[in-house]
Structures are given as structure tokens and as C-alpha cells.
């Protein structure tokens, strides 16, 4: 008896970094693998593979998720943002420029996840307190910087209610 709910692969249609993407993915495919291996978006990194470190963070409908522990089929009908969609050399996102200016990265392995998490924070709370930044970044680990410059870089991108830089 055919089981209409269980194809061995399904077609997902979503937007990735603002552009439409349609792909056949197996139910067990992880979003991180689809982004890195099928779409060649290497910004998101496999690090702990347990969703505790944040290096694989991407935004799905604006919300940070661990792509290493997220089925690709869940992206169907949704907007996915990776660090490649945040800005490009020559046209950096303000957060990327701030990270560079403040020295908020060294090896860079955690950086993509940090940037996207920071973007999600500022989209929700444009003028966060240091405590709010620390709360949002909890679970995004960095082995190099000691976090201080990351927090400073993010705070430097805060805007007041009128939209002016703080």
C-alpha cells in the first residue's frame, strides 16, 4: 500500500539569502549538510555537532537555529539566512564591519554563528543592554577572543529608537 506521507525524498522550496532554492532532500538530511555540500555555503561550521556551541547557527525565518541538528525538510517554505547573505567584501553588514574594527574574531570559526545570532538579537532588540547581549549569546562559544570584543562589537551596532547609532 503506497504511503503518501513517506517519500524517500521530498522537494523543498525555500529562500536562501534572499534567492529562491528548490531541492530534493532526503528526510534524514540535516540543514547544515545541505547548505554546505549542496549549496556550497561553507560559512556555517560543523563543530560540536550537538547544538551546544553555535558554530553552525543559521537564521530560519529570522530565528537562530542549530543547522547541525535541524532537518533540511523543515526549511520548506521558509527564509534561510547564512553569513554569506549578511554582507560581502566591499559591502559588509554593519555587524561584520564592527567585528573587524573591534577585533572580535581571531580564528574565525565561531564568527559566522556569532554574527547571525547578533543580527537576530538586534532585529528583536535594537538597543540591547550588555546583559541582553550575553543572554542571547549564551550557547555561542568562542575559544579565542574571551567574548569581550564580540560583545563590544555588537553593542557598537545598537541603535536608539529613532534609528540613530547609540
Amino acid at each position: 500500500m503506497p504511503d503518501t506521507h513517506t517519500p524517500s525524498s521530498s522537494r523543498i522550496a525555500c529562500t536562501v539569502n534572499g534567492g529562491p532554492v528548490a531541492l530534493d532532500v532526503a528526510p534524514h538530511a540535516l540543514l547544515l549538510d545541505v547548505l554546505r555540500d549542496r549549496l556550497d555555503l561553507k560559512g556555517a561550521k560543523r563543530s560540536c555537532d550537538l547544538q551546544v556551541c553555535g558554530a553552525c547557527t543559521v537564521l530560519v525565518d529570522g530565528a537562530p537555529v542549530s543547522a547541525c541538528t535541524y532537518l533540511a525538510v523543515e526549511a520548506d517554505g521558509r527564509d534561510v539566512l547564512t553569513v554569506e547573505g549578511l554582507g560581502v567584501p566591499g559591502a559588509l553588514h554593519p555587524l561584520q564591519a564592527a567585528f573587524v574594527e573591534h577585533g572580535a574574531l581571531q580564528c574565525g570559526f565561531c564568527t559566522a554563528g556569532m554574527l547571525l545570532t547578533a543580527k537576530a538579537l538586534l532585529d528583536e532588540e535594537p538597543d540591547p543592554t550588555p546583559e541582553q547581549v550575553a543572554h542571547f549569546l549564551r550557547g555561542s562559544l568562542c575559544r579565542c577572543t574571551g567574548y569581550k570584543k564580540i560583545v563590544e562589537a555588537i553593542l557598537s551596532c545598537a541603535t536608539t529608537p529613532s534609528g540613530a547609532p547609540r
Partner: peptide, 10 residues
């Protein structure tokens, strides 16, 4: 560890 063993999704 990466990758999952296949399953059907209902």
C-alpha cells in the same frame, strides 16, 4: 558523528 541513518518521515 555527522549524518543520520535514513528514516521515513510521516
Amino acid at each position: 558523528m555527522s549524518g543520520l541513518r535514513p528514516f521515513a518521515l510521516h
